[in-house]
Design a protein around this nucleic acid. Structure first.
Lengths: 138, 138
DNA sequence: CTATATCCTATAGTTTTTATAGGATTTATG
DNA sequence: CATAAATCCTATAAAAACTATAGGATATAG
């Protein structure tokens, strides 16, 4: 399961996308709207900003805003940033690979093969679906 | 990522399947072969037994053995048993469903839609692939 | 100058995961 | 029947990860 952190990030990004025309949005506004602890959300938005996904403005009239169009933000990007690996096993992770200590030859390991397929099927969706795809459909 | 518990379970099941002709297998043998803490493994095998996946025999000549053919044991079964939900969000989980508190209408939620697709793609593999599919290929 | 809002880093609280301990029970066998 | 071998069972400890909070630093609008 995705962590609360990542779930909150998605909800916050959705709010920012749906209010992109209103200029910078306050942390407190998002927190209230989406029922998230304001201080926890603050940390999350900061991480998104440091990753270049969000921009911010300080002081009166400040807040957070998207740095790029929703369709340019793949869901996989958010998950990897806040949750880490998407793969089910370290030995099939593309971004967080670790060699399997138990199995002698990954090329012949059946578990590795199946989990690689799971990873591919998951990534095909999460890398192609973007913030735009999770906005409320009207 | 899958927990160590689930990873150990897979390795133990593989060992049991590959030595099914040798009668009951000792916990200690599996632990040594796969480099798993013997006491931790004991708990895992017990859970698998209580779930009807393994059988056991006590006393001298005892040990654990598979209760059914490897091709009858889907990987999803093991994961759900030891790791819980396979879905990325509670609101798209088939076996551990929980209503989303933030979104007003799941039928219209884009996040729900995408994560449902991820779940389906993952389950298509994990419910159809079995212990037989992860045995070493020779 | 002041109020506002993010920035930054530390830490506290909670839950989950991983691992260990030790006695109870069952069974094979001499 | 006594003994050794093995799983059964439950509790608890140790470590790690996750969730949340705190409070001062910094930047900016007006």
């Amino acid at each position: 399961m995705l962590s609360k952190k990542t779930q909150y990030a998605f909800h916050a990004l959705i709010h920012l996308a749906e209010n992109a025309d209103k200029g910078p949005i306050l942390i407190s506004e998002i927190a209230q709207e989406k029922n998230i602890s304001i201080k926890f959300l603050e940390n999350i938005l900061l991480e998104l900003k440091n990753a270049g996904i969000l921009g911010s403005k300080k002081g009166k009239g400040g807040g957070y805003y998207l740095m790029r169009a929703p369709k340019e933000i793949p869901l996989a990007r958010i998950i990897r940033l806040l949750d880490g690996p998407i793969a089910l096993l370290p030995c099939v992770s593309l971004n967080y690979y670790e060699r399997c200590e138990t199995c002698k030859n990954e090329a012949v390991c059946g578990l590795n093969e199946v989990m690689s397929k799971v990873r591919d099927a998951t990534l095909k969706l999460l890398e192609n679906k973007t913030l735009k795809d999770i906005l409320t459909r009207n």
